[in-house]
Amino acid sequence: MFFKPISAAAAVALAASGMVSAQTSTKCNPLSTNCPADPAFGSERANCDFTQGACSAFQVLAGTTLDYNGNGAAFTIRQQNDAPTIATGRYIFFGRVDIVLQAAPGKGIVTSVVLQSDDLDEIDWEWIGSDNVEAQSNYFSKGDTSTYNRGAFHPVVNPTGSFHTYTIEWTPQIINWMIDGNSVRTLTPEQAKGGAAYPQTPMQIKLGTWVGGGTASAPGTVQWAGGYADFSAAPFVGYYKSISIVDYAGSDGPSFTSVNEYVYGDRSGSSKSIWSN
């Protein structure tokens, strides 16, 4: 049974702050108030080679210190409240993300690639440090964590000891999770409550490692993360080698027109309500 008490994006934020909660969070939720427009990638693609150092497409979040070497950006966990995280300052409105990474090893240690919107739509890749045979895919809609039956597990060889390419391609018609170019899962709007639970609003990309098996973590989180982390075995290091980000700007393929920002036209959270400038 897939059991996870909070979304990946919420867990990373809460781990970084030393808090534990069952609530997701957003700086401004456009479903309840008027929020600033989301800056768009638009026709400008991001191609980051972390073996060469930091990438301007990403912002380093508070409390994060990264090292860069031939393996890429090293996201290191040394103690319980460590949660090194970076996030894009711009958003995609449907699109494709390809990332080459080696997940962090260690019981209770989690590596996450998260696409998340202001109204808490979310699409994830996740790796448990003690599970060296699988990757996990997941999605959330509008911050709904009332059930935890949306996750799936996918075989992959030695994810904490070798690099693989993980892809999310997200269109109005389908979400496709891929490993090394091979599709391992698809989701259509019809499979997500007829589209009502289908992620469909502009998203940032967040990369991070965090402690799921912390002493202050919820029991369900600890169980999902494989148990309590043993910090006598620290440091635990995940490597992000490279990432490619392509914005589809509301369509089912790459945008070739200039788009500066995405605006929520109402409080429905529907893709049809989003307009671009």
Rank of each mutant, 00 (worst) to 15 (best):
A225D: 08
C55N: 01
Y91S: 12
N132S: 05
F94E: 02
G265M: 08
Y262R: 13
T33E: 15
Y68W: 09
S271I: 02
L207K: 05
S270M: 12
I174E: 10
K272A: 15
A13M: 09
W127Y: 15
G269C: 11
F94K: 03
G108A: 05
K193P: 00
K193R: 14
A9E: 02
V113C: 11
Q173H: 13
K27D: 10
A57W: 00
A229Q: 04
I168K: 07
A54G: 03
M19L: 14
A9G: 06
N260F: 08
D252K: 13
P199G: 04
R96V: 11
D230H: 04
S268A: 13
L31E: 01
V157W: 06
S251F: 10
S7C: 10
S130W: 03
V246I: 15
V20M: 11
S43T: 07
M19Q: 13
S137W: 07
G250V: 08
A54H: 07
I92D: 01
N132V: 05
P199H: 08
C48K: 04
S217R: 06
W224D: 15
V157I: 11
I86N: 00
Y240K: 03
M19A: 14
T171K: 09
A87E: 13
R150V: 01
F50T: 02
A62V: 08
Q204T: 11
W210H: 12
Y198G: 03
K272D: 09
A54T: 08
F41V: 09
P155H: 14
G238I: 09
G212I: 05
A104R: 04
Y139L: 14
G129P: 03
V97H: 00
S232L: 04
T145W: 01
P84R: 01
D82K: 04
G269W: 04
R45G: 07
Y148I: 10
D49W: 02
V156G: 07
G214E: 01
Q79L: 13
D230S: 06
F75C: 04
N149Y: 01
G238H: 12
V237R: 07
M19E: 12
G63Y: 12
V211T: 14
G63C: 13
A249L: 08
I168M: 13
G129Q: 04
